[in-house]
Design a protein around this nucleic acid. Sequence first.
DNA 1: GATTGATCATGT
DNA 2: ACATGATCAATC
Length: 231
Amino acid sequence: MSGARFEPTPGPSSEIELLARAQALAGVRLGELAERLERPVPTDLRRAKGFVGQLVELGLGATAASRSGPDFAELGIELKTLPVDSSGRPVESTFVCTISLTDVGDIEWELSPVRAKLARVLFVPVEGERERPVAERRLGTPLLWSPSAEEESELKFDWDELAGRIGRGDVEGITGHLGRYLQVRPKAADSHARRRALDADGVAFQALPRGFYLRASFTARIVAAHYALAR
DNA sequence: GATTGATCATGT
DNA sequence: ACATGATCAATC
């Protein structure tokens, strides 16, 4: 008894159970979910950017936020909330993972953290228009996704370009314009943050931390294909 | 209007 | 300090 702990929601024990739980949340407003979980709802997300993701994690019984590894460790599934507009189109890019600027150039796609993260993802669409009050935003129909062969080859292409460029010491030459579906953008507390990187000669220097993101056009295709099949 | 670069909170 | 969860806001 001394070590016993109650969790708000026990984790799902199978993919089917997880999907059923997520489906049961379709149509539910964030305000209602927050009330069930006894969590306050921020008036806007400027100072609570992770609110939606963390609320849904809690609602589905995911491992606590900020732990490394997949959200549902035993199932090997990553949870991503996906902000969408009224027609179901993603309104934001999707963060994938941070980048080790010193190692990324030596990692082949097959062993890359991007591939690992995206191997199995539960996308939960959420109304994400800024003018809609947070509490009134509804959850959508979830989608359990793994990349198709074509999607994976597209991601690999971008990985090779972006990781290769960083590996050649040119992280400072990378902008968000690069990459067809996968892009590299800052991922830091602010623009003054610095991490160790290596230049073209292998000499260490301090660079702005970066992360990999999926462009909204990529997730839009995934969602569109799902709805096409669902109807 | 879409996109890139900047930023915010929390937990380990 | 760094990884988790992302969205904001300036700019194109």
